Computed example of a mutant assay.
Amino acid sequence: MRTKRILTPASPLAIATLTIGLLTIGLSGCDSGVKEMSDDEVPPMASIEIPIGVVVALTGHHAEPYGLPMQRGFELALEEINNLGEVKLSFITVDDMSTPDGAEAAVRHLVNQNVPAIVGLAISTHLKQAAPIAQENEVIAFSSVSSASGLGAIGGFVFRTSLVTDVSIPDGVIATREILDYEEVATIYDEVDVYSTSSNEVLRSVLGENGVEILIEEAFKTGDTEFSEQLTRIAAKNPDALFISALSQEIAGILAQTAELDFPETIQIIAPDLTMSEVQKAGHGAEGAIGFIGWSSMSDAPGNRAFVQKYRAQYGIEPEPWAAQSYATLHVLANAIKTAQSADATAIRDALAQTTDFPSNLGKLGRFSFNPDGDALYDQILVVVRDGELEFLD
């Protein structure tokens, strides 16, 4: 058992909540905790407080798997950044209520608050609807979780921390096929979710390019809880592997039902964004499943062990990938503000676009960069479920 180290924050995070229309808005901020300096010693960007918009799901379907971990990651990073004393940030946090319309309304509200940047916007379907509003108003929309391909084309103010599907899927397929040597596969995907359809489309292309035949494709809709008919048809085809393209709740449900249906153990299950949340919910159904992910608590990326220790001490739980990615997002944004020496959105955007090999807690090596579309580049991690735990897939 690991011994938890007690971390005492420089000051508690204050959260105020008010209602605007159908939105619940929480304002949060914390003191920098930096000892007093003379006017000559204070870095220019530490003398002003820059409001950052945060759009996360605090209620609804996506709150538990995505929104609440993201909020914790942002808050932990905010405390660290302000304590460093080089820039000073505060949050205006808006609940997107787990809907695309909620995300759009949240972004419109934050644009009216004159924030230079908005972080969060987890779900690709939400980002697709809400990011054009930020782009039109020249406000940065920096998603810490969205990974559907092509959304960077919305415009130069859109950035993402997750590895997008047209980066992660090809690398994952090549790596897993070298290990498993599969020739015939099946796919199952959410036909209404933008990320899931993007993942399945990229899979279809990459598998074909590598000579792998897709025997059957099955679909469902976000919120479905019954997958037995699709899984039964897949089992009848007896593929070498099954690829799952879905959001957290549905991944867990599909994995759990493979155990209930006595799904053939000869069919290797691969879920690209597999996390411990789905593993724990799925129980025995997750055993042996493989994922390719952007963050692991086991990684030796710069600062990752310190992040894991601080998170455990602050919240009393193990850090989730979406918390880790949100933590990295705010540090990348703060570095761009420091580089730009400006609170102007265009200046920050230009500094973000030039981010190269920034030390982060993501991937195995932690070298974070952006491609020309504002999508993140770093090495991803292959994992497998063994005895209910995620381990590196060698």
Rank of each mutant, 00 (worst) to 15 (best):
1 M>F: 12
1 M>P: 00
1 M>A: 06
2 R>P: 00
3 T>Q: 11
4 K>G: 03
8 T>D: 05
14 A>W: 06
16 A>L: 11
21 G>Y: 06
22 L>C: 08
32 S>E: 11
32 S>L: 12
35 K>C: 05
35 K>Y: 06
40 D>Y: 13
42 V>P: 01
43 P>T: 11
49 E>W: 06
54 V>T: 05
58 L>E: 11
58 L>D: 06
62 H>V: 07
64 E>R: 09
70 M>W: 02
77 A>W: 04
79 E>G: 07
87 V>P: 01
89 L>Y: 04
100 P>S: 12
101 D>N: 09
112 N>D: 14
112 N>Q: 15
113 Q>W: 08
114 N>P: 00
117 A>D: 04
120 G>K: 15
121 L>T: 04
122 A>N: 08
123 I>D: 03
123 I>Y: 06
127 L>K: 05
128 K>A: 09
136 E>M: 14
136 E>R: 15
137 N>K: 15
139 V>I: 15
140 I>W: 14
141 A>F: 09
144 S>K: 08
150 G>K: 12
154 I>E: 02
160 R>P: 02
161 T>W: 00
163 L>M: 09
168 S>F: 08
169 I>V: 14
171 D>A: 14
173 V>N: 05
180 L>M: 13
181 D>A: 14
184 E>Y: 13
186 A>I: 09
190 D>P: 02
193 D>W: 04
194 V>H: 03
200 N>R: 14
200 N>Q: 14
203 L>I: 09
204 R>S: 13
207 L>W: 05
208 G>C: 09
209 E>K: 15
209 E>W: 07
210 N>L: 15
210 N>D: 10
213 E>M: 14
214 I>V: 15
225 T>C: 00
232 T>D: 08
234 I>Y: 04
243 F>C: 04
245 S>M: 02
247 L>N: 03
247 L>G: 02
249 Q>E: 14
253 G>Y: 03
254 I>P: 00
255 L>D: 10
260 E>C: 00
262 D>W: 00
270 I>R: 08
270 I>K: 05
274 L>V: 09
283 G>A: 10
285 G>I: 10
285 G>Q: 11
289 A>I: 04
291 G>W: 06
293 I>E: 01
295 W>C: 00
295 W>F: 14
298 M>R: 15
307 F>D: 03
307 F>R: 15
312 R>G: 03
320 E>S: 08
324 A>C: 09
329 T>P: 00
331 H>F: 13
334 A>H: 01
337 I>R: 01
340 A>G: 05
348 I>E: 04
350 D>R: 01
350 D>A: 04
350 D>Y: 00
354 Q>C: 04
354 Q>H: 06
354 Q>R: 11
360 S>E: 02
361 N>I: 15
367 R>D: 06
374 G>E: 05
374 G>H: 05
381 I>V: 11
381 I>P: 00
384 V>P: 02
390 L>V: 08
